[in-house]
């Protein structure tokens, strides 16, 4: 199997790392070689967070270079745009349309850009904007927006359907499982492949 490259990007506190964990564990359960890389240390303080997930028959580098991501999975629209150039020719961008002000915007130093959706659309032919926040709320908790996005990308990945629910059950605390399974399903339904 050709290596699949997924670049996740969002804001510290959004659960980007948990989403990466679900992806890597599912790939592992599918008997694939997997690597994942992130840079943490500052992620809890509202900074930009990216995580690289790669799986296939044999994976060497744990990181993805710009222009080589089969998928860019954005958890916030500005962060999706910031990393949109990672998408490979023919690749897919999926992103949560929600907005979180960076500290530079919150403090009035900068303004939150207009027209983000159009700018993202210019990077790839296949772009899916998902109302992650709204769907997570509908599932029962706004914090499950990360799982909505995992549900959305699952539609594109060559992985046994049943593994997703199994791994979500394994990774998440019992009381959050049902909520996240629902969020996952809403994410699946949100994209028409």
């Amino acid at each position: 199997m050709k290596t699949v490259n997924i670049l996740l990007s969002g804001v510290g506190g959004q659960g980007v790392l948990l989403a990466s964990q679900i992806l890597t564990r599912v790939a592992m359960a599918a008997d694939l070689d997997v690597k994942q890389s992130e840079v943490h240390g500052m992620s809890q303080r509202g900074g930009s967070v990216t995580s690289h997930v790669r799986f296939g028959d044999k994976v060497y580098a744990p990181t993805i270079d710009p222009g080589e991501a089969d998928f860019v999975l954005g958890f916030e629209r500005l962060e999706a745009l910031r990393n949109a150039h990672y998408v490979a020719p023919g690749g897919v961008i999926l992103y949560n349309t929600m907005r979180i002000n960076p500290s530079t915007v919150a403090s009035g130093v900068a303004t939150y850009p207009e027209g983000i959706e159009e700018r993202i659309a210019a990077f790839a032919d296949r772009v899916y904007a998902v109302d992650g926040l709204g769907l997570a709320e509908k599932a029962g908790n706004v914090r499950a927006a990360n799982t909505v996005m995992v549900g959305a990308i699952s539609r594109f990945l060559p992985i046994d359907e049943n593994l997703w629910a199994a791994k979500i059950r394994e990774i998440l605390p019992a009381k959050l499982v049902d909520l996240n399974l629902k969020a996952f399903e809403f994410g699946q339904q949100a994209v028409a492949v």
């Binding site: 804001v11 510290g12 500052m42 992620s43 809890q44 303080r45 509202g46 900074g47 930009s48 060497y60 580098a61 990181t63 270079d65 710009p66 222009g67 080589e68 500005l78 962060e79 745009l81 910031r82 990393n83 949109a84 150039h85 998408v87 960076p102 500290s103 530079t104 915007v105 130093v109 900068a110 303004t111 939150y112 850009p113 700018r119 990077f123």
Partner: peptide, 29 residues
Amino acid sequence: SPQLIREKVLGTATAVNTAADGLPARPPA
């Protein structure tokens, strides 16, 4: 990165979209 090594050793630069510019930074606070 693999890209850097490819570029320096093989001289093949990967055609890559330039990153969106003018975006507000999101530093930790």
